[in-house]
Each structure stands twice: as C-alpha cells, then as structure tokens.
Write a protein that binds this DNA or RNA. Structure first.
Lengths: 214, 214, 214, 214
DNA sequence: GATGAATGAGTATTCATTCAT
DNA sequence: GATGAATGAATACTCATTCAT
C-alpha cells in the first residue's frame, strides 16, 4: 500500500510545484514585456520547462495571465486584512500600518507589476479588469473607507468624503508602484518607496486631522 | 510664411493636417487596445486613409507611437508652465491651479491614456520611457518641487522633502488618470475627477501647512 | 480620366483571377492529402502566392475547403440539368446521357476528388456534409428519380422503388469516381471509366426494363 | 490449448484481449474523425487504457491504423469466401447471398467506415491502399468475376465483361456503405441498406440475364 | 507491464512593412 | 502623393511520441 500511495515521488513533487513555478516565471515575463509581447517560449524557458508543458497546466495564454494576477495579489491583500483585524488601534495607526506593509512589499517584491499589467491590459481583458476592480480595488478602498469612517466618528479626522479620502491615502502607493516598475530603471536614482510612503502618509494624515484650510 | 499661409487651398490644408489627424486616430486606437494589440489597419481606417499612406508620414509603428506620446502631452505641459509664469501667487494657490488644470483635462479629454500607455510599454520602449521620464515626469516634478520650495521658504509650508512632497501632490492626479482609463468603464459609478482632485489637494495642502503630527 | 478608370490593370486582372487560381491549387492539394493533412503552405506555393495572400481571399482553411467544394461541383451539376431540359427524349436515353456526361468528366477532370473529400471529411464538417447532401446528392437523386418515374409511367421501365432505382443507377458512377481517385494509382491498369459506365448502365437499364426475375 | 484455455485468470484474459479492444476503440475514433483528426488520447480513453499503453501494442499511429483496417475487414471477407465454398448453387443465388451478407454487415456493424477511411487516406498511405486494393478489392472483385464467369458459361447470364460486371454488382454495396457513414446522419430518413441492396441486386441480375438492349 | 508527465516538431493565423501601380 | 495587394516573419497551440517511475 505504501508504494501505491506515494507513487512517483519525484514527479509528484514536481507536478505539485509546477503551477506555482510557471506563474512565477510568467509574472516576470509579463512584467518585462506586457501581455501581448510576452512569448510563451520565454515563460517556458524561464520556468525550465518546454512550451508544451505549459499547456498541461494552463489552457491558454489568457488563462495563464489571469492566474498570475490572481495568485500574486490576493494572498497579500488577505494578509493585510488579517493584520488589521488582529491589530486594532487608532485609525491613523492602522492607515500607517497598512501603507507601510504595502511599501515593504513594493520595495521587496515584484508585486508592483500587477497593477501595471492590469492598467495595460484592462481594455483587452474586461473580465480581468472587473475581477481586479472588485476583488482588489474596491475591497481595498472599502477597507480604507471603513478606517476613515471610524476615525471621523471618533473625532480623530475631520469629516471628509471617505471615498475621496481613501483614494487620497492610496494614491501615493499607486505612484510608488508605478515609479518602481516603470521609471526607476531609467532614472538615475532609486526611489526609497518606504521613506516616500512614510512622508506621504504623514502629510495626508496631517491633512485629515487638520480642521480645514486653516 | 509661404506654405503656412495658404489656407485657401483645401487640399493643401488637408496635407498639412494629415500628421495630426493620424496621431489623433492612433491615440484612440492605442488607448483602446494598447500598443501591441493596436492594428495599423484600424488607425488608418479611423484616420480615413489607406494603410500605405501611414508610411508616408511615419516610418514605423514605433515612431507613430512616439509621436502620439510627444504630441499629446507636451503642449499641455507647456500650457501649464505658461500659466504658472503668468499667474504668480501663493504656493498653495499655484498647486491648486495646477492640479485643477490637469483635472479638467482628465475630465474633458483622452489625455489620461498617455500615462497608461507609457506604463504599459516602458519595458518595450526604453527610449520612450526615458523621453517621458525626462520631458514630462521630471519636468513636472521639478515644477512642483520649485513651488514647494518657495512655499517652504515663505513659511507657507512646513519643511518637507520636496521630492516626496511633489510626488504626494501629483499622486492623486495619477490615480484619477488611471481610474478613468482603466476602471471607470467597469465600475458602476463615474468618478468626478475634478471633485476628487479638489478634495485630495485640500487634504494634502492642509497636511503641508500643518506643523507636524500634533 | 482614362488612367483613373483603369487603375492598376495588371493587378486588377490578377486580383480577379486569384480566387479561382487558389481554389484550383487547393483542390489539388486537398485531393492528394485530405483536408487535415493539406498544408496551406503547399496550397500557396502551388498557386504561386505567399501564405499571407491566401488570407486576403479566404478567411480560414475551412472556408477555403468549402469554397473548393462549392466551386468545383455546382457548375457541372447545373450543366447536366440544363442538358436534360434541352434534350428531352426517352427515359433510358436521358439516363444514358446523364451517366455518360459524368463519365466524361471523371475521365477528363479531377472532379472525382470532390466526393472523396466529402466522404473523408463529412464527420468534421457537418455543415459541408449537409450542403453537399442537399445541393448535390439529393438534387441529383431527384433528377434521376424523376426520369425513372417518367419511364415507369410510360411503360419503359417496370415499377421499381424510384429511390432505390436512382441509387442503383448512380452507384457505378460513384464507384468509378472512387476507383480513379483512390486505387487507380496503385492498380496495374487504368479503368476506362467511360467504357465501364456504358457497360454498367446497359446492365442496369436492361434490368429496369425486364419484367421481373424471369 | 494452454494460453487460450486459462479463462480463470481475469488479468491474463485482459492482456490477451487488449490489442482487439484497442483496435475496436480506434475504429470508432477513426470513423468519427478520420485518420489525421483522430487523437490517440481519445483512442486510449475509449479503450480504457493510458496513452502510453497504446505504444506497448502498436508502435505508431500509422501502424494502429493499418491494424484497424486489417482486422476489421479480412475476417469478414474470409467468412464470405467460406460461405461461397460451402454453399454452391446457381451464380445468381451466390451473388444474391454475397450481397445480402454484406448488406447485413453494413446494417449491423460499423464496417462501412473502413472503405471510407481507405478512400480518405489512400493518398497518405500508399502502402495501405495497395494492401487494401490487393487483399480486399481485387480479391473481392475476383470472387465476383469468378461467379459471373460461371454464370456466363452456364448460360445463366449473357456475355458481359466480367470486370465491368463485377464492379456493377458491387457498386450498390459501396454506395450503401458510403451513404450510411457519410450522409445518413444528416439526411432526414434512414436508408434500409438491406432492402436497397435486394432491390439493386434484383435489377442488376435481371440486367445480366436479359439478352441485350431489347 | 502500465502510467502519464514531458517533449518539441509542425501549422494555422496575424499584421507590420513594402512597392508596383 | 496615395493606394492596397502582396509578403513573410513571428507565435500560440496541438498532439504523436518518449521515458522515468
């Protein structure tokens, strides 16, 4: 029974790992070239497999693209949600934590290419745009708006439109993601995403606390 | 004067207008499909000319793309620069004016697709990325940083890193551009870009004025 | 005006001729290899054009295949119908004429490959099978059945089921078509299709005239 | 007796039966799709084995195809030959028996797809075409010609070219096979192959008996 | 023997680019 | 200048075949 229930140990392990390996390779290639210009040959080569093997795991280039977007983002968003639930506190502290978490990701991983890909391909993949809008953007904005509402209710913040406020908080994050994936390679100097985001969130939070145009 | 001043001849005017007509058509098609997926057949059809004629004006798809980016943005940036020169005033007022100008453009024109295209294709067009970085991004950030410096010197703003500050000011503009070109078609409701930018700049300026976290 | 109204004489002439040239080339290649195994490269080469040019005239391999079937058969069937209308006479004479016309075509042209292709690909092209069944098979069987009915009514033939009778008359034609396209290349000797069909129709007509098993 | 008579071991029986099971499955798939379009995945699935196992029994798709043709036809031809040897009688009766045997097969089995496959793939498999021509077609025509010769010698039939006569007799069988495999699925009504063949052979035999064009 | 994961050669199709008219 | 027919390089996808387990 033992042998039968662990058949082909080496292969099995590979088979389980393959999808993730492919998605990782694909993320890199899509990030460098965009969806259309990415060649599946390159994805396969970078994943160390043959072109045909790709098709054992993903039925088409489009499905591979969708898998890349899904797998690369949702886990992170869920991590942040968990963190917020388990670390209550003042609204400002929560916003700072949220932005700094994302800043660390932008600094340390390739995650910034995902919004870049979405921005580039939303026109060609309406379904994917809707998925991302609903599962990432609106969910994220909803989180932020909730925190802002709490802050307003508690008197921490002045009464602003929370939809606008949420976008104002997240805008520097978007800018940092785009900067790192689009311009940093061509600019002379690196942008320290974490420092920038600390500074930006400081300004924005100050602005939310202040009681008007003063 | 000669060539430019013969507006009587319709045909001649046509010929002179061609490049601009083509660039306009191309902007639309690139905006809808992205660079790779855009077909020159479609551009030609939308410009009301034959595919062959395109090549009388632009030597390749890449050059057409570059022309689109150049022609669609620089005039606007120059207009803003002129406006700032001719309308001096407090730093905050200038920032408000600058953002509101861009907000009106985003609301009223297709200009938001340009950054979208740059973001999407920077990897494939390093030269274009450098051009845009230098001629648009750094020039725009420089303008903003200059205003911030003046504001800090005059005591209007607290002493922040002007590079970070400039990005914090422009971030909501970028978010609005991306929202309108990427998500608005799929979201239930429109984003009122001008209202959002007014609210965002109000928060950011308040934050810049405030004297710290207090 | 002259020049404008005869634009591109050489090209125009080619453009008009191209579809027919391509269909002819395609008929040959499909005949030799069958639909699946036929390569569009070969079709293009045999038509003396590039692969891309094929797609200016036919949107897909399938549509090319359908065009081949349509163009190669219907004109011949229509010719036979016209001949029958313009040459009335005894039923037997009409049947003989019809079969001998087809025999001459089988002997002199590649037309026999069309039924071969239909037989081979009916499973993969149900639409085409229906088209051929309706426009060729049932129309042809209807013609034959009509002649048989006339012959029975006039006492020329004994009373047989005209559906079965029509198929009995046409069966040798089908056999000849298949023999020539499938086996003749491998058999030592040629089949003289016209002689065979004369002999076969003689036997069948005798059998239709005879008054039973006698 | 040994191997054949160990029906107790299920596994052993399985192993012996495999080739036949595979050939049966392959016949079905080839029948539905044709040779090129048939996928070995489908054959394997229908035979209830893995794709790799196919290659333990047949070294290539082509060899499997040949095996299908060989195994599906020869036993039947041999059965008919045996029947003719063991049931002497008048030539007409033998022809009727032969055709009715085949008619029953066409009605009751998938055997009609074999000629269809040969017709479709003769160009791509010259060796197979030659095999089929020699082992089936010429052997069958030889049988028929022999009977016709006997009938002519005995005065049962008039003096016809026996090559032509044999083809005239078998032509309705071919038509019935093609009708059932190619058109019946798309025609409104079924063709009763046995009734048609009875009627056709009646006409043909009458024609062979009749003493000329009378 | 049996499996099915992996391979890579083969092909339909697209589209930027050219050039004869 | 303007056209659009023609080209052919480029690439997603399929599937017969192999082979480690």
């Amino acid at each position: 029974m033992a042998l039968q229930s662990q058949p082909a140990r080496r292969w099995r392990r590979r088979k389980d790992a393959r999808p993730a390996e492919i998605v990782t390779a694909a993320l890199e290639v899509f990030a460098e070239r965009g969806f259309s210009a990415a060649r599946l040959d390159d994805v396969a080569a970078r994943a160390g497999i043959s072109k045909g093997t790709l098709y054992l795991y993903f039925p088409s280039k489009e499905e591979l693209f969708k898998a890349v977007v899904r797998e690369a983002l949702l886990p992170n968003l869920e991590r942040v949600e968990r963190l917020l639930r388990t670390h209550p506190g003042p609204a400002a502290a929560q916003l700072e934590m949220m932005v700094s978490q994302i800043g660390a990701l932008l600094q340390g991983t390739q995650i910034g290419v995902i919004p870049k890909l979405i921005i580039a391909e939303a026109g060609n993949f309406p379904e994917l745009a809707r998925f991302y809008l609903k599962e990432v953007v609106q969910r994220g904005l909803g989180l932020l708006a909730g925190i802002l509402e709490r802050g307003i209710a508690s008197g921490e913040f002045r009464a602003v439109d929370v939809g606008h406020g949420a976008r104002t908080v997240i805008a520097p994050v978007l800018l940092a993601a785009i900067w790192k994936t689009t311009f940093e390679a061509h600019a002379g100097a690196r942008l320290d995403a974490e420092a920038f985001l600390r500074a930006a969130v400081d300004v924005v939070l100050s602005g939310l606390r202040a009681d008007g145009r003063g």
